[in-house]
Design a binder for these strands. Structure first.
Lengths: 140, 140
DNA sequence: GCTTGACTTAGAGTCAGCTCTAATTTTTAT
DNA sequence: ATAAAAATTAGAGCTGACTCTAAGTCAAGC
């Protein structure tokens, strides 16, 4: 079991931000130490894995609103047993959402590839120029 | 020659934002129609190409500050003749900056790959479950 | 020459996404 | 049992990145 500061250390997200994400609904409410909703937050490895997944989306350019559109409809990505019953309907919906998300990731990667291609081109241009200059130096 | 609204249309960046980028130094000051700094902004294809490159960086998650750290030291990525004279020193510096930038892009792509791997895993999990359910239906 | 429309500026306003404060309670170590 | 460290909350404040307003200038068509 992890505390909020353990999670902060393990993920690189501040405790402030973790509480903020919970408040606005990006992350689900975790269990608490005492009573149904008192005491400190307690996280397990499944929570950690989920938080890392969500943070990955954020870090790769997805807005919190977009992230929420994937996670609402009943917290679709947690894989936790106590979540919505797994019936064919929700399964189809989950798979659809993942498909859309994968397509979005592919789009982002394509864009990065394009930017990288331009950068490589520029580097090749400068390298060629440098080589010419060095040859000229050698002759003199 | 393009006006600011041509560039806005061609890149998808608003004219407001283009002026803002120029103001804070993300984009260089373009030529003007009349006098040295009066009249409307005029852009050519090299400017357009450069603006698209910069916007690509932004869209793939780089902050404006990070972008500026690549472009300062004398507007290192424009390839325009009237820029800093091409001497060995600045060439080395340009190549270094591009190398750092390419490394950064690789890092971002790696992160996207990781997020995608998790998404694919989740999808496979749900698909397998769906298949099982369908088989069960068939038997009944 | 006048209107229309796109351009110009400085500066104010907006919104997302944190980030922190203050006052309080809970947890942990001795 | 008590002190220190870490957690809790609501809500205020901050920063980055736009986004717009207002007041004015310029160029083209009628």
């Amino acid at each position: 079991m992890y505390s909020i500061s353990d999670i902060a250390r393990l993920t690189g997200i501040t405790a402030y931000t973790l509480r903020y994400y919970e408040r606005i609904g990006v992350l689900p409410k975790p269990r608490r130490q005492l009573g149904n909703s008192g005491g400190s937050r307690q996280y397990d490895d499944l929570d950690l894995r989920y938080i890392r997944f969500i943070y990955g989306l954020k870090q790769t350019g997805m807005t919190l609103e977009d992230i929420m559109s994937f996670t609402k409809d009943g917290c679709l990505l947690t894989e936790r047993e106590e979540d919505a019953p797994i019936i064919e309907d929700t399964l189809h919906s989950r798979i659809d959402i993942l498909n859309r998300h994968i397509a979005d990731l592919d789009q982002r990667m394509k864009q990065l590839e394009e930017v990288k291609a331009v950068a490589l081109e520029k580097r090749a241009f400068y390298s060629a120029m440098l080589e010419k200059l060095e040859k000229a130096d050698h002759i003199l």
